[in-house]
């Protein structure tokens, strides 16, 4: 026996230049620790949203009370406006004006007289208005001005207050705020505008 040196099958020759199919995996990169910052941002975001929503909700609710307050105030002012408008309409009704005029001693003049400027001619019969015309009140009734005092019925020198007269809580019987008649600004002659 020849001592043939035991030969192992030669390892396949490595072909240079041909990459090896297998290679050691590169050493794993150390896995990054999960960043706490992200978590914090996410949680904080959610929290912020929740808080924002809460605040908005509070604001809306607060607004609702404010809106409600204003609506109530508006309703109240509307009622007040209606009340004042009713009073105004009442006192500017022709019956009330006529009754006041009569109470102040005014009488209607049924004799119109015209002065024609072109030739100075007077048409019509100048005649003084006669007293003795029947009082207007019963002729053209107005249930709304029943009980409304005339200008002459207010105590002089005292302007009636805007408020309600105590005890006047009827349907149409409230006192109407009326101003005491101001004396006309006349000194001997009618005021004339200065024109050129």
């Amino acid at each position: 026996m020849s001592a043939v040196p035991a030969q192992s099958i030669p390892a396949p020759a490595r072909t240079p230049g041909r990459p090896r199919w297998l290679r050691p995996a590169p050493e794993a990169v150390r896995r990054a620790k999960p960043r706490l910052a992200y978590a914090i941002i996410a949680v904080a975001g959610v929290a912020a949203i929740v808080v924002a929503q809460l605040l908005l909700s509070i604001a809306v609710t607060q607004g609702a009370y404010e809106v409600d307050k204003y609506q109530i105030a508006q309703a109240k002012l509307d009622r007040q406006q209606q009340q004042l408008r009713e009073d105004l309409d009442r006192v500017q009704s022709p019956q009330y004006l006529a009754a006041n005029a009569e109470a102040l001693g005014m009488v209607p003049n049924a004799n119109p007289v015209f002065l024609r400027l072109s030739d100075g001619a007077v048409t019509g019969d100048p005649a003084a208005a006669g007293a003795g015309t029947e009082a207007t009140a019963p002729l053209v009734p107005n249930a709304l001005i029943d009980g409304v005092p005339l200008v002459t019925e207010h105590p002089t020198g005292e302007t009636p207050t805007q408020g309600k007269t105590p005890g006047a809580a009827g349907n149409a019987g409230e006192a109407i705020p009326a101003r005491a008649p101001a004396p006309p600004p006349v000194d001997g002659s009618l005021p004339t505008p200065a024109t050129h």
Binding site: Q92, S93, Q95, V140, P141, N142, L144
Partner: peptide, 8 residues
Amino acid sequence: RRYPNGAV
């Protein structure tokens, strides 16, 4: 309904 001028 309200009629401010009454019978007018």
